[in-house]
C-alpha cells in the first residue's frame, strides 16, 4: 500500500465527492450557466488535487487558465444566449439516456478497476528527484531544454488556431463601406432629411396613447409622430364616445 500523508487523505476525501458531484451536476443541470458553474467546481477540485500531489504550478495553472479564462469565455457565450434558454426534456432518440448511463458507468468501472489493478502494488519513485530544484524550476528546465520543440510547435498551433478563428469571425469592410461619425452627421443634414428629433405622439384630454398623432400648427396630424410599426385600426363606437370624465356623468 502506498503511504499517503494524513493531510492529503483528508483533502482527497473532502474534495473527491465534490468533484464527482460537480461532474454529475454539470451533466444534469437544465440551465446552461448552471452546468458551466458545476464544471467550474470540478475544475477547482482538480486544481487542488494537483497542488496536493506536489504539482503546485500545474495546479495553479489549472485554476488560472481553465477556471479563470476558458470557463469564463464559455460563460460569456452562455450569458449571451439568454438566461431562459434551458434544454428541452424531450428525448429525440428513444432510450438513449439509459444506454448512455449504462455505457458510462461501464466505462468508469472498467477504467477504475484497470487503474486499481495496475497501480495497487506500485511504489512511486522519482518525485523527490523531479522536484529537487523546486517544482517550477524543474518544469521550466524540461520545457525549455528537452521538450522545447514540442512546446514551440504547440504554441504555433494554438496561435494559428486563434488567428484562424479571428479571420473567420472578422467581417472585412471596404473603405467606402465604413461609416464614420462625420459621414453620418453629413447624411443627417442632406436635403430631404429632417435633422431634428421626431415629435412625440399627442397627449390630449381624450387620449394619451402612443397611437395618437401630434398636431402640426395648421391642425393636420404630424405623421412623423407615430411609430411606423404601430398597427392602425378604427376605433369602436364605445371607444369613440366621450368619456365619463368629459361629460360629467351625463350621457350625450
Amino acid at each position: 500500500m502506498i503511504d499517503v500523508s494524513w493531510g492529503e487523505q483528508v483533502v482527497f476525501y473532502i474534495l473527491a465527492p465534490i468533484a464527482v458531484i460537480g461532474a454529475l451536476g454539470m451533466v444534469m443541470a437544465r440551465n446552461a450557466v448552471h452546468s458551466a458553474l458545476w464544471l467550474v467546481l470540478t475544475m477547482l477540485s482538480l486544481g487542488v488535487f494537483y497542488i496536493v500531489q506536489a504539482g503546485p504550478f500545474i495546479g495553479m495553472v489549472q485554476i488560472i487558465v481553465y477556471t479563470g479564462a476558458i470557463m469564463m469565455l464559455f460563460l460569456f457565450v452562455l450569458m449571451l444566449v439568454g438566461r431562459d434558454a434551458s434544454d428541452s426534456v424531450i428525448e429525440t432518440l428513444r432510450g438513449q439516456k439509459v444506454a448512455a448511463i449504462a455505457l458510462g458507468v461501464g466505462l468508469g468501472v472498467l477504467l477504475g478497476t484497470g487503474l486499481y489493478r495496475g497501480t495497487v502494488d506500485l511504489t512511486p519513485v522519482g518525485l523527490a528527484e523531479a522536484n529537487k530544484n523546486g517544482n517550477v524550476q524543474g518544469l521550466a528546465s524540461l520545457i525549455f531544454t528537452k521538450y522545447v520543440w514540442a512546446f514551440e510547435v504547440t504554441s504555433a498551433l494554438l496561435i494559428s488556431a486563434a488567428v484562424g478563428a479571428m479571420i473567420l469571425a472578422h467581417v472585412e469592410r471596404r473603405k467606402d463601406e465604413r461609416i464614420g461619425q462625420a459621414a453620418m452627421m453629413k447624411e443627417r443634414f442632406l436635403p430631404g432629411n429632417y435633422p431634428g428629433p421626431k415629435p412625440g405622439p399627442g397627449v390630449y384630454a381624450t387620449s394619451n396613447s402612443v397611437a395618437t398623432p401630434a398636431k402640426l400648427p395648421d391642425g393636420n396630424p404630424a405623421q412623423r409622430s407615430i411609430s411606423p410599426i404601430l398597427p392602425l385600426r378604427e376605433l369602436e363606437p364605445a371607444e369613440k364616445a366621450d368619456k365619463h370624465t368629459l361629460t360629467g356623468g351625463h350621457q350625450s
Partner: peptide, 17 residues
Amino acid sequence: IPVAVLLVLACSGLGIY
C-alpha cells in the same frame, strides 16, 4: 508556497466570477 504570486492571480481570476 512556491507559486505564491500565482495564487493571487488565481484568486483574482476566480473573483471575476
